[in-house]
Protein backbone atom coordinates (compact mmCIF):
# COMPACT_ATOMS: atom_id res chain seq x y z
CA UNK A 1 0.00 0.00 0.00
CA UNK A 2 2.90 2.30 0.73
CA UNK A 3 3.96 1.79 -2.85
CA UNK A 4 0.70 3.15 -4.17
CA UNK A 5 0.83 6.25 -1.96
CA UNK A 6 4.44 6.72 -2.96
CA UNK A 7 3.51 6.52 -6.59
CA UNK A 8 0.91 9.27 -6.55
CA UNK A 9 3.13 12.00 -5.19
CA UNK A 10 3.30 15.72 -5.84
CA UNK A 11 5.81 15.20 -8.63
CA UNK A 12 3.35 13.11 -10.59
CA UNK A 13 0.70 15.78 -10.15
CA UNK A 14 3.06 18.49 -11.35
CA UNK A 15 4.20 16.35 -14.25
CA UNK A 16 0.59 15.94 -15.38
CA UNK A 17 0.11 19.71 -15.21
CA UNK A 18 3.31 20.34 -17.15
CA UNK A 19 2.49 17.83 -19.85
CA UNK A 20 -1.09 19.01 -20.14
CA UNK A 21 -0.11 22.66 -20.55
CA UNK A 22 0.91 22.65 -24.24
CA UNK A 23 -2.02 20.36 -25.05
CA UNK A 24 -4.50 22.68 -23.32
CA UNK A 25 -3.19 25.79 -25.08
CA UNK A 26 -3.18 24.18 -28.52
CA UNK A 27 -6.52 22.45 -27.98
CA UNK A 28 -8.22 25.71 -27.00
CA UNK A 29 -6.91 27.18 -30.26
CA UNK A 30 -8.11 24.17 -32.22
CA UNK A 31 -11.47 24.41 -30.50
CA UNK A 32 -12.00 28.02 -31.58
CA UNK A 33 -11.04 27.24 -35.17
CA UNK A 34 -13.21 24.13 -35.41
CA UNK A 35 -16.14 25.79 -33.67
CA UNK A 36 -16.06 28.50 -36.33
CA UNK A 37 -16.16 25.75 -38.97
CA UNK A 38 -12.54 25.50 -40.12
CA UNK A 39 -10.73 22.20 -39.68
CA UNK A 40 -7.29 22.74 -38.29
CA UNK A 41 -4.71 20.01 -38.56
CA UNK A 42 -2.12 22.78 -38.84
CA UNK A 43 -1.92 23.01 -35.02
CA UNK A 44 1.27 20.96 -35.09
CA UNK A 45 3.03 23.37 -37.43
CA UNK A 46 1.61 26.45 -35.72
CA UNK A 47 2.91 25.16 -32.42
CA UNK A 48 6.32 24.49 -33.91
CA UNK A 49 6.58 27.97 -35.40
CA UNK A 50 5.53 29.48 -32.07
CA UNK A 51 8.09 27.41 -30.19
CA UNK A 52 10.82 28.59 -32.52
CA UNK A 53 9.71 32.23 -32.65
CA UNK A 54 9.72 32.36 -28.84
CA UNK A 55 13.40 31.42 -28.80
CA UNK A 56 14.30 33.83 -31.59
CA UNK A 57 12.37 36.65 -29.91
CA UNK A 58 13.95 35.98 -26.54
CA UNK A 59 17.40 35.71 -28.09
CA UNK A 60 17.24 39.07 -29.83
CA UNK A 61 15.13 41.03 -27.33
CA UNK A 62 16.79 39.56 -24.23
CA UNK A 63 13.47 39.12 -22.45
CA UNK A 64 11.32 35.99 -22.49
CA UNK A 65 8.11 38.03 -22.20
CA UNK A 66 8.96 39.80 -25.44
CA UNK A 67 9.84 36.39 -26.81
CA UNK A 68 6.36 35.18 -25.89
CA UNK A 69 4.83 38.17 -27.64
CA UNK A 70 6.87 37.48 -30.77
CA UNK A 71 5.73 33.87 -30.67
CA UNK A 72 2.06 34.83 -30.41
CA UNK A 73 2.37 37.24 -33.35
CA UNK A 74 4.24 34.73 -35.51
CA UNK A 75 1.71 32.04 -34.63
CA UNK A 76 -1.17 34.30 -35.61
CA UNK A 77 0.48 35.27 -38.88
CA UNK A 78 1.33 31.67 -39.77
CA UNK A 79 -2.29 30.77 -39.11
CA UNK A 80 -3.24 33.56 -41.50
CA UNK A 81 -1.77 31.44 -44.32
CA UNK A 82 -4.06 28.58 -43.32
CA UNK A 83 -6.97 31.00 -43.06
CA UNK A 84 -6.37 32.62 -46.44
CA UNK A 85 -6.10 29.33 -48.25
CA UNK A 86 -9.01 27.71 -46.38
CA UNK A 87 -11.41 30.65 -46.30
CA UNK A 88 -10.25 32.98 -49.06
CA UNK A 89 -9.28 30.38 -51.66
CA UNK A 90 -11.55 27.64 -50.27
CA UNK A 91 -8.86 25.02 -50.59
CA UNK A 92 -9.20 21.65 -48.93
CA UNK A 93 -8.56 22.48 -45.29
CA UNK A 94 -6.68 19.26 -44.61
CA UNK A 95 -4.42 19.83 -47.60
CA UNK A 96 -3.63 23.36 -46.45
CA UNK A 97 -3.01 22.21 -42.89
CA UNK A 98 -0.55 19.62 -44.16
CA UNK A 99 1.29 22.32 -46.10
CA UNK A 100 1.58 24.49 -42.97
CA UNK A 101 3.00 21.57 -41.02
CA UNK A 102 5.64 20.87 -43.67
CA UNK A 103 6.48 24.57 -44.00
CA UNK A 104 6.93 24.97 -40.26
CA UNK A 105 9.06 21.85 -39.92
CA UNK A 106 11.31 22.99 -42.77
CA UNK A 107 11.49 26.70 -42.03
CA UNK A 108 12.40 26.33 -38.37
CA UNK A 109 15.37 24.04 -38.98
CA UNK A 110 16.39 26.09 -42.01
CA UNK A 111 16.45 29.26 -39.92
CA UNK A 112 18.41 27.64 -37.08
CA UNK A 113 21.12 26.90 -39.61
CA UNK A 114 20.87 30.44 -40.95
CA UNK A 115 20.87 32.30 -37.61
CA UNK A 116 23.20 30.22 -35.48
CA UNK A 117 24.98 28.04 -38.08
CA UNK A 118 23.91 25.07 -35.99
CA UNK A 119 22.01 22.05 -37.13
CA UNK A 120 18.80 21.12 -35.42
CA UNK A 121 19.03 23.02 -32.12
CA UNK A 122 19.24 26.58 -30.90
CA UNK A 123 21.35 27.92 -28.05
CA UNK A 124 19.72 28.13 -24.61
CA UNK A 125 17.81 31.32 -23.88
CA UNK A 126 16.32 32.81 -20.73
CA UNK A 127 13.08 31.19 -19.61
CA UNK A 128 9.84 32.62 -18.30
CA UNK A 129 9.69 32.56 -14.48
CA UNK A 130 8.28 29.71 -12.42
CA UNK A 131 5.40 30.42 -10.04
CA UNK A 132 6.23 27.38 -7.90
CA UNK A 133 8.91 24.73 -7.98
CA UNK A 134 8.82 23.24 -11.48
CA UNK A 135 5.62 25.05 -12.38
CA UNK A 136 6.14 27.66 -15.05
CA UNK A 137 3.98 30.76 -15.16
CA UNK A 138 2.44 29.53 -18.41
CA UNK A 139 0.94 26.50 -16.64
CA UNK A 140 -1.75 28.37 -14.68
CA UNK A 141 -2.33 30.66 -17.67
CA UNK A 142 -3.10 27.65 -19.85
CA UNK A 143 -5.69 26.31 -17.43
CA UNK A 144 -7.18 29.78 -17.05
CA UNK A 145 -7.77 29.83 -20.81
CA UNK A 146 -10.33 27.02 -20.50
CA UNK A 147 -13.04 28.96 -18.59
CA UNK A 148 -12.25 32.02 -20.70
CA UNK A 149 -12.89 30.12 -23.93
CA UNK A 150 -15.96 28.53 -22.32
CA UNK A 151 -17.55 31.86 -21.38
CA UNK A 152 -16.49 33.42 -24.66
CA UNK A 153 -18.38 30.78 -26.61
CA UNK A 154 -21.37 30.42 -24.28
CA UNK A 155 -21.99 33.94 -23.12
CA UNK A 156 -20.46 36.52 -25.42
CA UNK A 157 -22.24 37.80 -28.49
CA UNK A 158 -19.12 37.23 -30.57
CA UNK A 159 -18.73 33.68 -29.30
CA UNK A 160 -22.31 32.77 -30.13
CA UNK A 161 -21.80 34.15 -33.61
CA UNK A 162 -18.65 32.05 -33.97
CA UNK A 163 -20.65 28.96 -33.08
CA UNK A 164 -23.34 29.95 -35.57
CA UNK A 165 -20.66 30.08 -38.26
CA UNK A 166 -19.61 26.58 -37.31
CA UNK A 167 -23.08 25.11 -37.12
CA UNK A 168 -24.73 26.66 -40.14
CA UNK A 169 -22.60 29.12 -42.13
CA UNK A 170 -25.34 29.75 -44.70
CA UNK A 171 -27.85 30.70 -42.01
CA UNK A 172 -25.26 32.81 -40.18
CA UNK A 173 -24.48 34.68 -43.39
CA UNK A 174 -28.18 35.23 -44.08
CA UNK A 175 -28.71 36.99 -40.74
CA UNK A 176 -25.86 39.36 -41.51
CA UNK A 177 -22.93 37.73 -39.73
CA UNK A 178 -19.67 38.16 -41.62
CA UNK A 179 -18.77 34.47 -41.57
CA UNK A 180 -15.44 34.84 -43.37
CA UNK A 181 -14.23 37.62 -41.09
CA UNK A 182 -15.08 35.71 -37.93
CA UNK A 183 -13.43 32.59 -39.29
CA UNK A 184 -10.28 34.51 -40.17
CA UNK A 185 -10.25 35.78 -36.60
CA UNK A 186 -10.75 32.36 -35.04
CA UNK A 187 -8.15 30.63 -37.21
CA UNK A 188 -5.65 33.37 -36.32
CA UNK A 189 -6.54 32.92 -32.64
CA UNK A 190 -5.86 29.21 -33.04
CA UNK A 191 -2.39 30.21 -34.23
CA UNK A 192 -1.94 32.46 -31.21
CA UNK A 193 -2.97 29.69 -28.80
CA UNK A 194 -0.89 27.06 -30.57
CA UNK A 195 2.09 29.45 -30.44
CA UNK A 196 1.60 29.78 -26.68
CA UNK A 197 1.72 25.99 -26.51
CA UNK A 198 4.95 26.01 -28.49
CA UNK A 199 6.41 28.83 -26.41
CA UNK A 200 5.76 26.78 -23.28
CA UNK A 201 7.90 23.97 -24.72
CA UNK A 202 10.82 26.30 -25.33
CA UNK A 203 10.86 29.36 -23.05
CA UNK A 204 8.56 27.74 -20.48
CA UNK A 205 10.30 24.44 -20.12
CA UNK A 206 13.38 23.34 -22.07
CA UNK A 207 14.94 26.77 -22.68
CA UNK A 208 15.88 26.01 -26.27
CA UNK A 209 14.39 24.78 -29.53
CA UNK A 210 15.17 21.44 -31.16
CA UNK A 211 13.91 20.23 -34.52
CA UNK A 212 10.40 18.76 -34.53
CA UNK A 213 10.23 19.26 -30.77
CA UNK A 214 6.43 19.37 -30.77
CA UNK A 215 6.57 15.64 -31.56
CA UNK A 216 2.93 15.27 -32.55
CA UNK A 217 1.46 17.27 -29.65
CA UNK A 218 -0.52 19.38 -32.12
CA UNK A 219 -2.24 16.28 -33.42
CA UNK A 220 -2.88 15.06 -29.88
CA UNK A 221 -4.42 18.44 -29.05
CA UNK A 222 -6.71 18.09 -32.04
CA UNK A 223 -7.67 14.62 -30.87
CA UNK A 224 -8.40 16.09 -27.44
CA UNK A 225 -10.81 18.59 -29.02
CA UNK A 226 -12.67 15.75 -30.67
CA UNK A 227 -12.48 13.47 -27.64
CA UNK A 228 -13.81 16.40 -25.63
CA UNK A 229 -16.72 16.67 -28.04
CA UNK A 230 -15.75 20.23 -29.07
CA UNK A 231 -16.53 21.45 -25.52
CA UNK A 232 -13.89 23.44 -23.58
CA UNK A 233 -14.10 21.46 -20.33
CA UNK A 234 -14.46 18.14 -22.12
CA UNK A 235 -11.36 19.04 -24.10
CA UNK A 236 -9.54 19.92 -20.88
CA UNK A 237 -10.41 16.51 -19.46
CA UNK A 238 -9.11 14.84 -22.62
CA UNK A 239 -5.84 16.82 -22.39
CA UNK A 240 -5.42 15.69 -18.79
CA UNK A 241 -6.04 12.10 -19.83
CA UNK A 242 -3.36 12.27 -22.53
CA UNK A 243 -0.92 14.03 -20.23
CA UNK A 244 -1.78 11.66 -17.40
CA UNK A 245 -0.91 8.58 -19.43
CA UNK A 246 2.45 10.12 -20.32
CA UNK A 247 3.26 11.25 -16.78
CA UNK A 248 2.09 7.94 -15.35
CA UNK A 249 4.38 6.07 -17.69
CA UNK A 250 7.41 8.19 -16.77
CA UNK A 251 6.61 7.83 -13.06
CA UNK A 252 6.28 4.06 -13.50
CA UNK A 253 9.70 3.93 -15.07
CA UNK A 254 11.38 6.07 -12.38
CA UNK A 255 9.80 3.95 -9.66
CA UNK A 256 10.81 0.80 -11.50
CA UNK A 257 7.33 -0.61 -11.96
CA UNK A 258 7.16 -3.14 -14.75
CA UNK A 259 4.38 -1.83 -16.95
CA UNK A 260 5.08 -1.64 -20.64
CA UNK A 261 5.53 2.03 -21.41
CA UNK A 262 4.25 1.47 -24.93
CA UNK A 263 1.00 -0.15 -23.90
CA UNK A 264 0.35 2.63 -21.40
CA UNK A 265 1.09 5.30 -23.97
CA UNK A 266 -1.13 3.57 -26.51
CA UNK A 267 -4.15 3.71 -24.22
CA UNK A 268 -5.21 7.33 -24.90
CA UNK A 269 -5.09 6.74 -28.65
CA UNK A 270 -7.31 3.69 -28.36
CA UNK A 271 -9.71 5.66 -26.16
CA UNK A 272 -9.79 8.49 -28.67
CA UNK A 273 -10.62 6.15 -31.52
CA UNK A 274 -13.43 4.67 -29.43
CA UNK A 275 -14.67 8.14 -28.56
CA UNK A 276 -14.61 9.28 -32.19
CA UNK A 277 -16.42 6.15 -33.25
CA UNK A 278 -19.21 7.48 -31.07
CA UNK A 279 -19.35 4.66 -28.58
CA UNK A 280 -19.01 7.23 -25.83
CA UNK A 281 -22.13 9.43 -25.96
CA UNK A 282 -22.93 11.11 -29.22
CA UNK A 283 -19.66 12.70 -30.28
CA UNK A 284 -20.76 15.39 -32.68
CA UNK A 285 -18.73 17.79 -34.79
CA UNK A 286 -19.95 21.31 -35.60
CA UNK A 287 -22.48 20.73 -38.38
CA UNK A 288 -20.95 23.30 -40.71
CA UNK A 289 -17.33 22.13 -40.29
CA UNK A 290 -15.57 22.59 -43.62
CA UNK A 291 -18.60 24.19 -45.29
CA UNK A 292 -18.71 27.61 -46.90
CA UNK A 293 -21.47 30.20 -46.48
CA UNK A 294 -22.14 30.63 -50.20
CA UNK A 295 -21.70 28.26 -53.14
CA UNK A 296 -18.37 28.85 -54.88
Amino acid sequence: MDGIIDFFDLNLFKAVLRMATPLVFAAMGGLLSERSGIMNIALEGLMLSGAFAAVVGTYYLHNPWWGLLVALIVGGLTALIHAFWSIGLRSDQIVTGTAINLLAAGTTVFLIQRIWAQSGRTPTVQKLPDVAAQVNVLVPIAFLCVPIVYFFLKSSKLGLRVMACGEHPQAAESVGINVSLLRYGMVMMSGVFAAAAGAFLTIGSLGLFTRDMTAGRGFIALAAVIFGNWMPFGTLAACILFAGAQAFQIQAQTKGIGISADLLLALPYVLTIIAIAGVVRGSRAPAGLGQHPTPN
Binding site: I81, W85, L89, R90, S91, D92, V95, T96, T98, A99, I100, N101, L102, L103, A104, A105, G106, T107, T108, V109, F110, I112, Q113, R114, S119, N296
Partner: peptide
Protein backbone atom coordinates in the same frame (compact mmCIF):
# COMPACT_ATOMS: atom_id res chain seq x y z
CA UNK B 1 20.15 23.76 -45.23
CA UNK B 2 18.57 20.65 -46.70
CA UNK B 3 15.40 21.43 -44.78
CA UNK B 4 14.59 23.70 -47.72
CA UNK B 5 13.16 20.49 -49.20
CA UNK B 6 10.40 20.42 -46.57
CA UNK B 7 9.72 24.08 -47.30
CA UNK B 8 9.46 23.28 -51.01
CA UNK B 9 7.01 20.46 -50.25
CA UNK B 10 4.82 22.82 -48.26
CA UNK B 11 5.03 25.45 -51.00
CA UNK B 12 4.14 23.00 -53.74
CA UNK B 13 1.03 21.92 -51.84
CA UNK B 14 -0.01 25.54 -51.36
CA UNK B 15 0.62 26.20 -55.05
CA UNK B 16 -1.50 23.23 -56.14
CA UNK B 17 -4.29 24.31 -53.81
CA UNK B 18 -4.01 27.91 -54.97
CA UNK B 19 -4.12 26.94 -58.64
CA UNK B 20 -7.25 24.88 -57.97
CA UNK B 21 -8.78 27.98 -56.46
CA UNK B 22 -7.84 30.05 -59.48
CA UNK B 23 -9.96 27.72 -61.61
CA UNK B 24 -12.89 28.15 -59.23
CA UNK B 25 -12.47 31.91 -59.14
CA UNK B 26 -12.38 32.00 -62.95
CA UNK B 27 -15.59 29.96 -63.15
CA UNK B 28 -17.25 32.18 -60.55
Amino acid sequence: SREIVLVLQGLVILAIAGLAASGRIKAW
